[in-house]
Simulated scan of single mutants.
Amino acid sequence: MKRWMVVGWILLFPLFLEGAKIKEICNVIGVRDNQLIGYGLVVGLNKTGDGTTSKFTLQTIANMLQSMNIKLDPKDIKSKNVAAVMVTATLPPFARQGDRIDVVVSSMGDAKSLEGGTLLMTPLKGVDGRIYALAQGSVTIGGRNGRGGGTLNHATAGRIPGGALVEQEVAFDLYSQNRATLSLKEASFQNAIAIQNRLNRHYRGRVAVAVDARTIRLQKPAGFSMIEFLAEAGELSIDYTRKPRIVIDERTGTIVSGVDIEVEPVMITHGDIVIKIDERKELPTISKKNEAVNIGKSTQVQPGNHAVVTRKGATTVANIARALKKLGASPKDIISILETMKDAGAIHADLHIL
């Protein structure tokens, strides 16, 4: 059983994990997203577009009008209802002509807002320079980004749901293949061997070989197409070993950590905050000026806002984050302290900074 903690401010919630399906922890090599990018214009803005200092916007407007047989010197263009933008999108695997994909539109110049604007037809190219989609449509502000990430809460970036039409496919013939390769999302010799053994037991033959900590080569068994084989194999579960990880988003001050990640003996001074954890039996403490907080699970508030926390078991990242929060430490301080503990070797977990 795994339990997790979120700080940003702090929220605790349980997560029960008995196993993981192979498809959840592996990718099939060759089955991948492709990034697309394009440059275009957003029109229809209410005087919130680029000013005359954005020369590239004025030149782009002049070029567009010239393609419509309207010749105009860029210096004569004074409109503030247009903004130059970069358009990005993700082309999913096996996308076909006529499919629609979401696009994200981001201002390049000094536009104040893209709200209410319309993106004109913009070719989206891949890394090979070929056009794979055409984007056009009304820009919405405050939606989520094109890959399901965080909220776009500023007016100079927006989204067009289904705003691009796929014009060209990325060819990949998986059906006729006899071999495939799985790639673990997180390198682990233990998990690679677990997948190999699980597949070989299920199909009663040597259909899988782990070649390193991330790669498992597959041989399609008789009587299956490659699509059927991958579909069935992906649903098989293994006892998945996940390396402890602390995820930190420095922009929002959010920290996500396993509650049971222990902290080794250490002493750290950060500004007016002092953290002391040793191997003796007394409670580890975090102090700030004249306040002291014992690291633990249950809390009693004494007169003078002096918080005392009784501790059971080992000191963990969750205990420290909770105690720092009680002392009024900012998310930035908490993040800095955890990074220092990791560098000092007091935390044996991957630290992932977003």
Rank of each mutant, 00 (worst) to 15 (best):
K2F: 11
L11F: 13
P14T: 14
E18Q: 12
K21H: 08
N27H: 02
V28S: 06
G30P: 04
V42H: 01
V42A: 05
L45V: 02
N46E: 03
G49N: 09
G51P: 04
K55W: 02
A62F: 02
N63F: 06
I70C: 07
I70A: 03
K75A: 08
S79T: 15
N81H: 08
A84W: 02
A89R: 02
R100Y: 05
K112T: 09
K125P: 00
A133W: 03
A135S: 05
Q136W: 01
G137R: 08
S138C: 07
G143Y: 06
R147M: 15
L152D: 09
A157P: 08
R159Y: 06
G162C: 10
A171R: 14
Q177A: 12
N178I: 10
S183P: 06
L184F: 00
L199C: 05
N200W: 03
A210I: 04
T215L: 09
M226Q: 11
F229R: 10
A231E: 14
R242N: 13
I248E: 00
R251A: 15
G253W: 01
G253F: 02
V256R: 15
V256K: 12
V259R: 13
P265W: 14
H270L: 12
G271M: 12
E279T: 15
K281T: 14
E282K: 02
I286N: 04
K288Q: 11
K288R: 15
I295T: 11
G296S: 05
G304L: 11
T315M: 09
A318K: 04
A318L: 07
A318N: 05
N319K: 13
I320R: 10
P331I: 02
L338V: 04
T340H: 15
M341G: 10
A344Q: 12
G345T: 07
A349I: 03
D350L: 08
